[in-house]
């Protein structure tokens, strides 16, 4: 066999191995990214996802701090709302009205989050900025 042919066989073997691995890894690490509305409306239809990520706006005045450092808050999206419980480090930009992404799973009607991200939509390059005064 020519070295080039041998090399091709080795290469195909490596690629096949990693393709298989990628396939397996995707399967075990899937996180569904849904809005509050989607989570609630598909609650009964969908299969149980391993991990869910839900996007919503933090309802003003809904953030409640417990004495053990955990927090509860409500995220909203197109009229629907979802109660979230979370314990962990709270991102600096997390507050009323920001867009929050929570990751965890839905038990009953309460979402137990193990990860919390927050972001302010287009806050750095705000188009309406030049029209408002400080």
């Amino acid at each position: 066999m020519r070295p080039k042919t041998k090399l091709k066989i080795v290469a195909i073997f490596i690629i096949a191995f990693f393709s298989f691995l990628i396939f397996k890894a995707v399967d075990s690490s899937l996180v569904y990214y849904l809005t509050v509305n989607e989570v609630l409306s598909e609650k009964d239809k969908r299969p149980r996802y391993k991990q869910l990520r839900v996007l919503g706006i933090v309802k003003a005045g809904s953030i409640l701090k417990n004495s053990d450092g955990s927090i509860e808050f409500v995220i909203e999206d197109s009229g629907k709302s979802l109660l979230v419980k979370y314990k962990g480090v709270i991102p600096d930009i997390f507050k009323d009205g920001v867009e929050a992404v929570v990751e965890g799973d839905l038990r009953g009607s309460v979402f137990n989050a193990d990860k919390l991200f927050a972001k302010c939509p287009t806050k750095y390059e705000d188009e309406k900025y030049d029209k408002e005064s400080i």
Partner: peptide
Amino acid sequence: GKRILVGPSFYDLVNFPNVLL
């Protein structure tokens, strides 16, 4: 039609044997 992400474990799982090789 759905947004699905892969978590950090995806990268760890695939890259670990790769880095070893």
